[in-house]
């Protein structure tokens, strides 16, 4: 079963990697958008799935990544910029995590709710009052297909990490925290340490996703890269699929990405309304995520089978 899982994963990865070869530049753009949300939703679920902390800080880290690229584009090679961006994301994650993660989850939700806005205000203030400009140009020679492949690599790393965490002692500890923090603490789990580690890993992945895509914008401004909708889209995608499962965020990201792309072209003004309705519908109709429905069907089929047997 395990080798079968790994084989499927490899085939899927290769399939995704050759996907851009047959299509044009518009297709590449669509693939980048889809892969970006696959990475974001999976990285979000890496922390929020098992710990059940609702993080709204996604775009804060995404924006930090993109803005780091904008600042350093003329000074460093792209690879080195990615390393710097990841490090900055790590530092911010540790700072935020240390302040909020040892407290009840609600403090974290509230702080992450405004973190993106806080970072946006600080950068805007710094750029206008110290540098006296707002907005930067990014000129880096990277094709859309190359960006897609980098994001695909990041996605494979994210899913690999999630799989590894789920099958290690760390995963056991994390799930214990999600079920009952007090019990986990009594069982000897370093609760704050585990939460902090997961939050840091998840944040670095999100920062990198922002950094990798930055060259696609050409012109970058705080209000563009810190667009709060990205946080909400990520959250709703992970929830739709089921954040507790390895493939849940992917299963949520792909259909919702295309749904929102379609809505954005057909009903551009009703975007927020539809996003809101999707949120409410998920909580009431599929509280455990789409993939949990498979379990339900299986259980029902099994029960029906046993009944027929008897």
């Amino acid at each position: 079963m395990k080798t079968f899982g790994i084989l499927t994963f490899l085939v899927l990865a290769v399939g995704m990697a050759v996907l851009p070869l047959g299509i044009g530049d518009y297709g590449h753009g669509v693939l980048v958008g889809m892969m970006s949300y696959i990475v974001l939703a999976s990285a979000w679920a890496l922390f929020s799935g098992p710990t059940r902390y609702v993080s709204l800080a996604t775009v804060a880290f995404f924006g930090i990544g993109a803005y780091t690229v904008a600042v350093l584009a003329d000074h460093l090679p792209f690879g080195a910029i990615l390393v710097v961006a990841g490090s900055i994301g790590l530092c911010v994650a540790l700072l935020v995590g240390l302040a909020t993660l040892r407290l009840a989850g609600i403090y974290f939700v509230i702080f992450s709710f405004g973190l993106a806005e806080l970072v946006r205000q600080l950068i805007t203030w710094f750029e206008t009052s110290v540098n006296h400009t707002l907005g930067r140009y990014i000129f880096i020679e990277v094709s859309t297909a190359q960006i897609y492949w980098m994001l695909l690599g990041l996605g494979i790393i994210t899913l690999g990490l999630r799989w590894w965490i789920g099958n290690s002692r760390l995963g056991l500890a994390v799930n214990a925290i999600g079920d009952d923090e007090t019990v986990a603490r009594h069982a000897g789990v370093n609760v704050t340490g585990v939460k902090l580690a997961l939050f840091a890993v998840s944040s670095v992945l999100i920062t990198l996703a922002g950094a990798i895509q930055a060259p696609r914008w050409t012109y970058v401004e705080p209000s563009i890269v810190f667009n709060p909708t990205i946080s909400f889209m990520t959250l709703v995608m992970a929830l739709l699929g089921g954040p507790g499962r390895l493939w849940g965020p992917v299963a949520g990201a792909v259909p919702l990405y295309f749904l929102f792309e379609w809505i954005a072209t057909r009903f551009p003004d009703q975007n927020a309304i539809i996003l809101g309705l999707v949120f409410v519908a998920i909580v009431f109709l599929v509280p455990g995520g789409l993939l949990s429905l498979i379990d339900k069907w299986r259980a029902r089929a099994r029960a029906a089978g046993e009944q027929a047997h008897a």
Binding site: I106, A272, I273, L275, G276, L277, F279
Partner: peptide
Amino acid sequence: EIDSILVTFGLMFLAQGL
């Protein structure tokens, strides 16, 4: 707590959109 956070998020978007 989690359910109410998510639902009220949805309501927030809905209201802002309206």
